[in-house]
């Protein structure tokens, strides 16, 4: 949210499978998101990609990969094209702490710095990859330091502090837009629920409720809500609840894709091509 606040509508984001919030923050449509989860034809990928591959190219949401780390390089390539085409827009790329262990992370950062590309790297560090803590996976858990070693300015900040996040993002975006090359934000956060699915997973024993508690107490949404007067907040909440209810109703009423959809979009289709020409 905080990062997208600093972006222009023409800027582009690349995400990873934990992409629902990013999709909405960059202007994706809630109805199309919920319909996608229902596997309906009105979903943002017509029910074909599912939860992990949300996209809204018109809004600059350029998709999300379920293969950890892969979109980092794609975002770098997009940024190269932006620069090459002399477009004013920049790219923001989101990934987890786990993704920084993949080779493609190092290779992509090096190239982005080498070519001074207009890209903001955002590492959402929730300290876990599935059930394994960062300390059990990284010899140097300081992700910011690793990013700095490639030769770009990198900061580490509290992702639960929405104002700080907005401020740092705006500052980074300004410098990237001014042609000063890539920037890196390591944003700490925490996953409240299990890796996949809506349940709690404390029973697995890899983390404790005590560890999670401070993060939940510092929930940025609640902190923000406390700053708004009661009546105004209630109005906003009602509006949002309404929007959510509407999206679910929309999804339920929508049709599943027809059988012929199985074979569409494998390649550019001749009929479409003719119509478009």
């Amino acid at each position: 949210m905080g990062v997208c606040e600093a972006l222009e509508p023409g800027d582009v984001v690349f995400g990873y499978y934990r992409c629902h919030a990013l999709y909405l923050a960059k202007g994706g449509d809630l109805r199309a998101l919920v319909a996608e989860l229902f596997g309906k034809a009105t979903g943002c990928t017509k029910g074909k990609g599912g939860s992990m591959h949300l996209i809204d190219a018109r809004r600059g949401v350029m998709g999300a990969s379920a293969i950890v780390g892969t979109t980092i390089a794609n975002a770098v390539g997009y940024a190269y094209a932006q620069k090459y085409c002399r477009r004013p827009n920049i790219v923001a790329c989101f990934f987890g702490d786990g993704a920084t262990e993949e080779g493609v992370f190092a290779e992509s950062l090096n190239f982005a710095v080498l070519k001074k590309l207009p890209i903001l790297f955002v590492c959402e560090n929730n300290f876990y990859a599935i059930h394994t803590h960062q300390n059990k996976r990284q010899g140097l858990p300081d992700i910011r330091a690793r990013a700095q070693a490639f030769g770009m300015r990198a900061e580490r900040l509290d992702g639960n502090d929405i104002f700080e996040l907005c401020r740092c993002s705006a500052d980074a975006v300004r410098s990237i837009r001014a042609g000063q090359g890539p920037r890196f934000l390591e944003v700490t956060t925490y996953r409240w629920r299990e890796h996949v699915g809506p349940g709690c997973d404390y029973h697995l024993g890899y983390r404790s409720e005590a560890e999670a508690q401070p993060w939940q107490d510092a929930d940025p949404l609640r902190r923000l809500a406390r700053l708004i007067d009661d009546q105004h907040r209630r109005e906003m909440e009602n509006e949002v609840e309404q929007e959510i209810a509407d999206a679910f109703a929309f999804a339920e009423q929508s049709e599943f894709p027809s059988a012929t959809e199985l074979y569409t979009d494998v390649f550019k289709e001749e009929a479409h091509a003719a119509a478009g020409a």
Partner: peptide, 10 residues
């Protein structure tokens, strides 16, 4: 001969 779709219908 397509990518695996997620929707159960397909």
């Amino acid at each position: 001969p397509v990518t695996c779709p997620t929707t159960p219908a397909l």
